[in-house]
């Protein structure tokens, strides 16, 4: 009996580290490409990063000068998409979860939203060109690009907001209603504060993706080379992702360091935005648990 047990425990002692090793290995496999890409871009691009590179207008088709208008353009796109997609996505999700009757129409709408997230981004670009630029006559502009990116971001926003709202414990909502609060008061004071961290996470993912999109904006107003800042929402603009594509593919004789530098700045802009969002989310969590 004793020998059986010790044999068993020996087997446990052997399998345990193997399991841990395999799980750890897979985690490493997932993480390592990300680290490799980041380090590779950093090493190759850091040489291009100077104060002038970040704050000057480009010249000679991007071969010289800086990328200031592209940074500002991407910033406008992210901010505009956030302002446009976050409230619409949040309120649409609230309506779908809290107010709409759970009938077949709502099921179809939910399914449509999921499918919307899977539509290829160039299709959004064509839609933006046809609808916002031409039909609504907004023209090739920052605004048209923001609206186009918002359509794409909305699908993600609604889906993630809905998850966050549904995850709020039912007991809280019931307790609030039982105290004689209206439905909107319950949403405003219980459901929204509770689901805010999740909604913000969804927004961060959606906006980060919007910042990196090239296809949807190249048809609706992103400029190949425009050494000036947009003066109004109806002007054309430069954006980092599209600029990266043009300098990498269409500008012969440009230094490799410059190209990597643009990529590094794009990643940094997204990273700074994410860190800001994480701080806001932590604040929202703290408030929730205080």
């Amino acid at each position: 009996m004793i020998t059986v047990m010790s044999a068993q425990s020996k087997r446990h002692n052997r399998t345990e580290p193997i399991a841990f090793f395999i799980l750890g290995l897979f985690t490493l496999i997932i993480v390592s490409p990300v680290i490799f890409i980041l380090v590779y871009i950093l090493i190759n691009g850091i040489g291009a990063i100077t104060w002038d590179f970040l704050t000057q207008m480009p010249s000679m088709a991007g071969k010289a000068g800086g990328i200031f208008p592209a940074i500002i353009g991407t910033f406008y796109l992210m901010l505009g998409t956030l302002l446009c997609a976050l409230p619409i996505g949040m309120f649409a999700a609230l309506y779908l979860t809290e107010y709409a009757r759970q009938n077949r129409l709502v099921k179809i709408i939910n399914l449509t939203i999921v499918n919307l997230a899977g539509v290829p981004s160039i299709v959004y670009g064509l839609f933006g060109l046809g609808f916002f630029v031409l039909t609504m006559n907004i023209g090739m502009s920052v605004l048209a690009a923001i609206l186009t990116l918002s359509c794409q971001a909305l699908a993600m926003m609604i889906a993630s907001s809905r998850e966050a709202i549904v995850a709020v414990p039912r007991e809280y909502g019931e307790a609030s209603l039982a105290l004689g609060s209206t439905k909107w008061q319950t949403i405003r004071h219980i459901v929204l504060p509770q689901s805010m961290p999740g909604i913000i996470t969804g927004a961060v993912l959606a906006i980060s993706r919007a910042a990196g999109e090239t296809a949807p904006i190249l048809t609706v107003g992103a400029a190949f080379y425009l050494p000036a800042l947009p003066q109004s929402p109806f002007d054309q603009f430069m954006a980092l992702a599209y600029h990266l594509y043009t300098v990498a593919a269409n500008v012969p004789g440009i230094s490799k360091t410059t190209i990597w530098g643009v990529a590094l700045v794009l990643i940094a802009v997204v990273l700074i935005f994410d860190i800001g969002a994480i701080i806001i989310r932590m604040k929202a969590r703290q408030r929730r648990h205080e």
Binding site: Y172, E174, A175, A178, L179, G180, T182, E290
Partner: peptide
């Protein structure tokens, strides 16, 4: 219904204080 629930309060099976002070 809102007025009714102010006059008829409720305590639930599982203690469910809000995650607030």
């Amino acid at each position: 219904v809102v007025d009714l629930r102010r006059r008829v309060g409720m305590v639930f099976q599982k203690p469910n204080p809000f995650p607030m002070s």
